[in-house]
Amino acid sequence: MVYRTATGAGLPGQFTIRAPNESEPSAVTTETKLYAITASRLRDGAVIYFAGKQTWSVKFADSAIAPDGDALLAEAAAGPPPLEAVGAYVIEVTQAEGIIRPVGLREEIRAFGPTA
């Protein structure tokens, strides 16, 4: 599975790209559909994203992304106590120049907060 991760806080467009830890081949092109996994955190309902390696993050930019959403979801479900993540599901994301963004207004609002 190929992960791309990026970090950043706040609003879309303000992401900075984390330098890849390894010299991963950039196997993912912009034409391939990409997916991430999101859920709500049990104890406070916060929006969380599967960040790979059995971890979840409140930052959208930490999302692990992959072309196979279902496989990613299975991997997330196998992760840490299933208690932490409630109602995990697959979302589509886009990636351009290393910056990932959720697709659709609903997921944008979940990721970045209410618009009004």
Partner: peptide, 28 residues
Amino acid sequence: RRLAGQLSEEEFRPLRLRNGLYLQLHAY
């Protein structure tokens, strides 16, 4: 019991709902 894992989300949901607690987009 929910936080301790004795209740699944499916079991807990109707209980919290009857106390007015929904899981919404950003939080409860």
